[in-house]
Design a protein around this nucleic acid. Structure first.
Length: 677
DNA sequence: CCCTCCCGGAAAGCGATCTA
DNA sequence: TAGATCGCTTTCCGGGAGGG
């Protein structure tokens, strides 16, 4: 079909369509790009599917006649209905069958000689759909697997074919018709993929939760861990699910029952079910979150953890040099939690904020630090000691573990989810997210100096939300929470995507890393190109051949004889000229016209020049210019080979020009011959 | 006019890397 | 582990500049 439709297009339109197909971008989960029609024989089934479902109509409607396009659209719509979920309910297969039969009926009006058995099989798709469900659930690999299993485990019988047929017959009887197409295609909501080896005792939050909820002593009997959880057919992963790869589907935004306007972000450590309550919980490592909009009246958006007025000055220690500077607020380019970008001698420099306050306060703190420094008398080690002391003091503060508990049957929950939270701004300026929200280890590693971190002890308060002390929040990498999972963590798909992508600081950091590495790669590539050009333009022209010679090696050269000619006696103006003359001596003109340089390759239509004689060429080159053995490869590949490649190419070019000139002259000299055509 | 050299783009294969 | 993708290398080709 594709071939027939493609055949009806002009070459220009074919080229346009091929480009459009090959350049069509897809979301990452498609895994395959569309291939152009000219490679149709190499296209795989999933690529055909992509073209059929997503590429054909948007691209071909500009080039194909509308009646043809409409007819083929019947097929596409029918196949999409057969392939996907029962989006039209129980009548899905009926509607699809109507479309496919209409397509079948009108087929001979549009195509000649293509009404084959395969086309007829389309009329049976409806019954197949009813018996076995949507086509996306079918595959040949299961049958291959079964056949392979029987083949490798056969015992005592040679009638394997009969056994397979019998098994399929039984299967057909058992599954003659699926009672509910919709139920067959739905993913059951709830936890799945149990993690039987999860060690609940390694997690204090879970232990505390269990101790609060249950009086029994065996935590393993009460709790059951799961790696994944389905909410409205959308699967969420946890950190215990190892096959999540680069997916961020373990990162969620969730709301407080008490305060629907505030939301949190976190990574799902695992899901677990508590036998007594029939609820499923998620253990979440929470990121501290600052709602930017709620603090829009306050300028202090980068220091969300205190309510003090904006400090006038900052005492900063430059990370690279260790120098202290006092910087005014206006000179701070960016401020993270405890680090900042400041302008020093016109350059952006990363510094650690040691103190915030008035200029006098900063000076006093600076003076104190210098005094301590003098007393200690060891600069670099001392600095790190101070840092550690500070950090450890911070962790001495009270733990800030919080538990919020929602009922999965809470009718208020859906309305709790806000749609108007504007996360788009985060998409535009991902670094702003880092400055405002990220205190994760990853971000600290990237944008702030490394700090020694210690997880605080966990404590759980059931059904209550203590007011989060911003100061305390600042010091934790994550806060671990246990969330009861309602049937929908997030309300709609768009919201999911926004939350999962825009809020995931780790993915943003990865993105920035990728950007940096791509810039670095681009620079390296350009540098390489530039070096190559410089080599060509300057070095090779003025290259000093002595660089390739063995120092002090002035021994006599062995003659290289070919057809009684000593190749070393040939004189050339330069290396290239000499090489060309030697090739002309070693090979006939015909050989030069139909050959390429050794070693050649199977991908090339022309065969390489005779290798035995080409060795003589190497000997002559080596002897003529006294090239050291270990330099000869570089000498040949850099200086000689490019010239010889062009030489062979130009020889063929000259031959073509010669032949075209001859044919023109012969045509002009014998006009009668022209008439014979 | 011939020859050499250079340039850019297309096409193809190969190896490394990634992914399901 | 097979297949997809990407970067790299090489050939091939057309075109053009410049020198002898």
């Amino acid at each position: 079909m594709f071939v027939e439709i493609y055949r009806r297009l002009s070459p220009v339109i074919r080229a346009t369509i091929d480009i459009a197909l090959s350049q069509q971008p897809f979301p990452h989960f498609f895994h395959r790009r569309m291939k152009s029609f000219k490679d149709l024989s190499f296209i795989k089934a999933t690529e055909i599917l992509n073209i059929l479902f997503y590429g054909f109509l948007p691209i071909f409607h500009q080039h194909l006649q509308h009646d043809y396009l409409g007819h083929f659209a019947l097929y596409i719509c029918a196949m999409r209905l057969f392939h996907g979920r029962a989006i039209l309910g129980p009548r899905t297969s009926d509607i699809a069958n109507d479309l496919i039969m209409k397509y079948y009926h009108d087929f001979n009006s549009f195509y000649d000689g293509l009404e084959n058995f395969v086309l007829h099989l389309h009329s049976h798709y409806q019954s197949q759909y009813r018996m076995y469900g949507t086509f996306s659930h079918l595959g040949s690999f299961g049958q291959e697997s079964l056949i392979g299993y029987i083949g490798s485990n056969r015992k005592g019988t040679t009638h394997q074919g009969d056994i397979i047929c019998e098994n399929y017959g039984i299967d057909l009887m058992l599954h003659h018709q699926i009672e509910n197409i919709c139920s067959c295609t739905n993913i059951a909501d709830g936890p799945f993929d149990p993690d039987l080896n999860f060690d609940f005792r390694s997690n204090d939050s879970v232990i505390n939760f269990h101790n609060t909820e249950c009086t029994c002593r065996s935590i393993k009997c009460c709790l059951r861990a799961f790696r994944r959880y389905a909410v409205k057919q959308r699967v969420y992963h946890s950190l215990t699910y190892n096959r999540r790869q680069k997916s961020v589907s373990y990162f969620v935004r969730y709301y407080s029952k008490d305060n629907s306007t505030s939301y949190f972000f976190g990574k799902i450590v695992m899901f677990f079910k508590y036998s007594n309550s029939n609820c499923t919980y998620a253990l979440i490592e929470r990121y501290p979150v600052q709602d930017e909009r709620s603090n829009s009246n306050s300028k202090k958006i980068y220091t969300p953890t205190t309510n003090a007025p904006e400090p006038e000055c900052f005492l900063c220690r430059i990370i690279d040099s260790g120098e202290y500077v006092i910087v005014q607020r206006s000179s701070m380019k960016r401020i993270y939690d405890d680090s900042a970008e400041i302008m020093v001698y016109g350059q952006r420099t990363e510094a650690r904020i040691e103190h915030r306050g008035t200029r006098e306060e900063c000076r006093r703190v600076w003076g104190n630090k210098e005094e301590i420094h003098k007393l200690k008398g060891r600069d670099p080690q001392y600095d790190s000691d101070i840092e550690e002391d500070v950090d450890l003091n911070e962790y001495d503060e009270e733990p800030t573990e919080i538990l919020t508990c929602y009922s999965s049957r809470d009718p208020q929950y859906d309305s709790d989810i806000e749609e108007d939270v504007d996360l788009n701004e985060y998409d535009e300026e991902p670094t702003e997210i880092l400055t405002c929200y990220s205190t994760s280890k990853t971000s600290t590693k990237t944008f702030a100096p490394q700090r020694k971190r210690t997880l605080v002890e966990s404590s759980i308060t059931i059904n209550s939300r203590s007011s989060i002390s911003p100061k305390k929040t600042k010091h934790n990498d994550f806060e671990k929470e246990i969330q009861v999972l309602p049937n929908d963590i997030l309300n709609d798909e768009e919201n999911n995507k926004r939350c999962l992508t825009a809020s995931s600081t780790s993915s943003i950091i990865q993105h920035i890393d990728a950007l940096f590495s791509s810039v670095r790669r681009e620079n390296e590539k350009q540098f390489k190109e530039l070096s190559k050009q410089i080599d060509r333009k300057h070095n090779i022209d003025s290259i000093d051949l002595s660089a390739f010679r063995e120092p002090g090696n002035d021994q006599a050269r062995d003659d290289v004889i070919h057809d009684n000619v000593n190749l070393l006696r040939i004189r050339g103006k330069n290396v290239g000229d000499y090489g060309r003359q030697v090739l002309r001596c070693l090979y006939s003109r015909e050989e030069l016209l139909v050959s390429i340089l050794p070693p050649g390759g199977t991908q090339y239509s022309r065969k390489p020049l005779d290798i035995v004689r080409f060795e003589k060429f190497h000997d002559a080159m080596r002897g003529k210019y006294r090239i050291a053995d270990h330099y000869y490869d570089e000498f040949y590949n850099k200086l000689v080979r490019p010239k010889l490649v062009d030489f062979l190419s130009d020889e063929r070019k000259r031959e073509r020009q010669k032949q075209s000139t001859n044919s023109l002259s012969s045509q002009s000299s014998s006009p009668d011959h022209n008439l014979s055509f």
